[in-house]
């Protein structure tokens, strides 16, 4: 189990590294999105900054994590199916997506700081919430990418399926992040953070239960 898991994660990393153009494509996508946001909003106040950051994260996650299942041809999945258990495969994909999305979140945070300024009181706390956000968003979209790939569809379907599901997640995340914006006390912060973590666990568990049905032909 563990060796197959590590091999699968390594395989994804190597594939990404060999096709550098897609990786650089996502980085360029982040760069141009942040630049477009900057051109329109300038250096906004903290609450607007927060909203713009999470919206950017939503579009970045769709472009980076979407490919986790969509970039490989369908025939290859049949080959994987004969090799590993579906749960191992999904966990490996999710793990790789989380790492990739953390990296992309780091890049977009750096670009936001460079262009839109850094109007935060507690920078480290915001980075922690951003990390939690990339974890939550990437596990949801990894699973939806599997659904879209099995349906033989493109990334547009993933956006249709995913937006209503992640809107509440983004709401919770931006609410969590408000604690980092100012020195004001936010009541019930830990409760909200607990809900977010609980939801992540639920998504992973549901994914592990449902994925074998999705994969089976």
């Amino acid at each position: 189990m563990s060796s197959a898991f590590l091999t699968l994660v390594r395989k994804d990393a190597i594939l990404e590294w060999r096709q550098k153009h897609t990786l650089y494509g996502v980085v360029l996508y982040i760069g141009s999105t942040v630049f477009a946001v900057y051109m329109m909003a300038g250096q906004p106040e903290a609450s607007v900054w927060n909203i713009l950051f999470w919206l950017t994260q939503l579009f970045v996650v769709i472009n980076s994590v979407a490919r986790s299942f969509l970039q490989e041809p369908a025939q290859r999945f049949r080959y994987y199916y004969s090799l590993v258990r579906p749960t191992t495969f999904l966990l490996a994909k999710m793990c790789y997506s989380v790492v990739l999305q953390m990296l992309m979140t780091g890049i977009s945070l750096a670009l936001f700081a460079l262009m839109l300024g850094w109007p935060l009181e507690k920078g480290l706390l915001f980075c922690a919430v951003a990390g939690l956000g990339s974890l939550s968003l990437s596990v949801v979209f990894t699973f939806l990418s599997a659904v879209a790939a099995r349906a033989g569809q493109n990334a547009a379907l993933m956006a249709i399926l995913g937006f209503p599901l992640v809107t509440p997640v983004l709401l919770i995340l931006s609410k969590l992040a408000t604690k980092a914006l100012s020195a004001a006390i936010v009541t019930g912060w830990w409760q909200l953070a607990g809900i977010m973590l609980g939801l992540d666990v639920l998504i992973v568990v549901m994914g592990l239960i449902l994925f074998p049905f999705l994969w089976h032909e």
């Binding site: 099995r150 509440p168 919770i172 809900i195 639920l202 049905f213």
Partner: peptide
């Protein structure tokens, strides 16, 4: 295929959204 994928999405969406509808 349609039946299976739709069922998977239906269950996943329900498991995810119902807690939110009752919590938020």
């Amino acid at each position: 295929k349609r039946g299976r994928i739709a069922a998977v999405y239906n269950i996943f969406a329900c498991a995810m959204i119902v807690p939110l509808i009752f919590v938020i």
